[in-house]
Nucleic acid binder design. Structure first.
Length: 628
RNA sequence: CGGGAAGUAGUUCAGUUUGGUAGAGCGCUCGCUUUGGGAGCGAGAGGUCGCAGGUUCAAAUCCUGUCUUCCCGACCA
């Protein structure tokens, strides 16, 4: 044993200083006014309470208390990841562009990433730097390449790797403080497996770990079925925290079905017999280029006996522009019941596949120029045509314009729709008899009351904050980056991947959204910056001496203490700050001291009780334990 | 990228209509008093009024341009 090792072996760590946070020393300034740029509660309170400061739009600096809470959240995530056998690694945030070019994302991410050039990237003439690096928005490429770098056998798999890392996205409009920033911290893990069983096991393990994480954090986030984007793969779920200010919309039924609106599927009605249906008739319907005017005109001039026409009797043909990855702009028509609106985001998810376009497409509302290029489309009077023999819309039709229909348009359903001529509509057009379509598409805005696809009852729509997303990535990245291992037959096998993201900074904001009142934050004890916020108030030196002693004893007992020892600060300010900062237990050493009592106050309920100073330490230890 | 609002002290804001020596609350510094719900009195520090140009004897204020920020929407595995 070396001399140094002997010295080290003799060294016994002792706690030289207590860990109590003294407000007289803490780098903190609480704000009485709400910051002008903060709208949502989490943003307002985290800034006011001195946890974070804005450094640039969507970019925040972390102050001591904020960093403390952030680290505690990270720790929960880390423990649960480790518990399922995932191993922590850490990649740079600053990355060369080559891996992203190889995966295609240097282009497809487009304006969404921060790019930059190093000194070698400078062109002599003109003297500009061309980007050859990026600040990573996520790290799929790096994880994939790292496994490729080191592993080459099926025997090495499965493996789960994760990191907790700062990510950068050039959000067009950062908002709501930590909820949508341009710099944020994310835990992202990836599973690598050869067999489907292993892949599903990794997915299930992550799903269970996420549920435990949310339980431990005290965040009632729920898994909802999600759209897995254009990366392929199968299972995909988001963990949403239901909250009015959330940017995601999801649906749920009483029976427990939950899905993001982008992923929900509609329940088509049964096909209808149409043998006895009368032939379709074209009527002159002047000035009816909207559904509303059309319904009015239909009831006024062509009313039916049994009931009035409604918007649901009309077939709305919505012209959209589909932009391909190459930038080509194609026109398509989507047919939906007239009482429904098209959700371009939902259409976006599947329209590429329906039209046979590879890669990521985007769907936009058609503009005047799009219509002008297709003179056959008469705005307000567009329809599929009058007969199957001569369809007007569809890939095989006269116009060749792709025609996609909502699943509610089933065989035998009867419609009032445009006759492709100014002021002309056709009544009694029967789906399947008079017209057909290239394919169906889920694209209408989901409404409250729509049935759940699994028969579990009517749906209601809610808003939520996306805190996690787990999904099977399939083999997209392993294909493009050539991650293969030898399988047991000695053949090259492309590795299947799973991707599991968790928004750490966003979870912190969500925690505040879920836990605050008009006075300030109310941290769950698992992430609170301390167990006890000790306030000394009174004029004599006795309260400070007693509080100091109590702080020291609590610290020795293993409780984390924030001690407000500021001598010239009035009681009102101290109470206000304690409530703003949000530590779950507030202890006041003050006027009760003469009777040997202190006050123990629950931050959440506001309930206070007097406790004998002599019993304070065990009482608070027990209380802290009961809160966990 | 479309629509709206706003840039004045660390911060929250007034002052701009009608051009005339830069203001208030909170915060900060010093002194005295005060100490269970954001204390009182007194004395201070702190601002190229986003930037550039123009009009004028004179511009925070009027004109032109420009930049930035925030909100709503679009976008966003």
């Amino acid at each position: 044993m070396s001399h140094c090792a002997k010295q080290a072996a003799r060294f016994k760590p002792i706690r030289l200083v207590d860990m109590t946070t003294r407000l007289s020393q803490l780098f903190l300034r609480t704000l009485r006014d709400n910051p002008v740029d903060a709208e949502v509660a989490s943003h307002r309170l985290l800034v006011r309470a001195g946890y974070i400061r804005r450094a640039a739009p969507g970019i925040y600096s972390w102050l001591p208390l904020g960093l403390n809470v952030l680290r505690r959240i990270e720790q929960v995530v880390r423990e649960e990841m480790d518990a399922i056998g995932a191993q922590e690694v850490h990649f740079p945030a600053l990355l060369p562009k080559e891996p992203y070019e190889a995966s295609g994302r240097w282009k497809t991410y487009g304006d969404g990433i921060f790019v930059l050039g190093d000194r070698k990237s400078e062109e002599v003439e003109p003297r500009v730097r061309r980007p050859n690096y990026l600040l990573a928005p996520t790290h799929e490429e790096m994880f994939t390449l790292l496994v490729k770098d080191l592993y080459s056998s099926y025997k090495d798999l499965p493996v789960n790797l994760y990191q907790i890392q700062t990510k950068y996205r050039d959000e067009a409009r950062p908002r709501a403080g930590l909820l949508r920033g341009r710099e944020f911290i994310m835990k992202d893990s990836y599973s690598f497996a050869v067999t489907d069983e292993d892949q599903q096991a990794a997915y299930a393990a992550h799903r269970a770990a996420y549920i435990r994480i949310f339980e431990r954090l005290g965040l009632p986030a729920v898994p909802v079925a999600a759209d897995n984007g254009n990366m392929g793969g199968s299972a995909s779920e988001e963990f949403l925290f239901p909250c009015e200010i959330g940017e995601d919309t999801f649906v749920e039924s009483d029976g427990g079905y939950r899905a993001n609106v982008e992923a929900v599927t509609s329940v088509p009605p049964e096909p209808v017999e149409y043998d006895d249906a009368p032939a379709a008739v074209v009527h002159h319907t002047p000035g009816t280029d909207t559904i509303e005017t059309l319904v009015d005109a239909a009831n006024a001039d062509h009313g039916r006996q049994d009931r009035a026409w409604t918007a649901a009797d009309t077939l709305k043909n919505v012209v959209v522009a589909v932009v391909t990855p190459e930038g080509e702009r194609r026109v398509a028509v989507i047919a939906v019941p007239g009482d429904r609106e098209v959700d371009l985001k939902r259409a976006d998810a599947t329209i590429g596949a329906k039209l046979g376009v590879a890669g990521e497409v985007s769907v936009e509302a058609a503009e005047a120029a799009d219509l002008a290029k297709n003179p056959g489309l008469v705005r307000g009077y567009i329809g599929p045509g009058l007969s199957l023999e001569a369809p007007y819309l569809g890939a095989e039709s006269a116009t060749g314009i792709p025609y996609l229909a909502d699943p509610r348009i089933v065989s035998g359903s009867r419609w009032i729709t445009g006759a492709n001529a100014q002021d002309q509509h056709v009544f009694g057009l029967v789906a399947g008899r008079d017209f057909t379509w290239d394919d169906t598409i889920e694209s209408v805005v989901v409404r409250d009351g729509d049935p759940a696809p699994d028969g579990s009852g009517p749906l209601t729509t809610r808003r939520g904050i996306e805190l996690g997303h787990i999904f099977m990535l399939g083999r997209y990245f392993s294909e493009v980056l050539d991650l293969k291992v030898l399988d047991e037959n000695g053949k090259q096998s492309t590795v299947a991947m799973g991707s599991y993201g968790f928004g750490v900074t966003r979870a912190m904001a969500a925690l505040v959204e879920a836990n605050h009142d008009d006075k300030g934050i109310i941290w769950p004890s698992t992430v609170a910056p301390a167990d006890v916020h000790l306030v000394a108030t009174g004029k004599g030196s006795e309260v400070y001496e007693a509080a100091e002693k109590l702080a020291s004893e609590l610290d020795s007992a293993g409780l984390k203490v924030i001690y407000d020892d500021r001598p010239k600060v009035s009681p009102g300010v101290k109470f206000g700050d304690a409530e703003l900062l949000g530590v779950p237990t507030i202890v006041v050493v003050g006027r009760g001291l003469s009777e040997g009592k202190i006050e123990v106050k629950d931050r959440r309920s506001g309930e206070a009780q007097n406790v004998a100073l002599d019993d304070a330490v065990p009482h608070l230890i027990e209380r802290a334990a009961s809160l966990l």
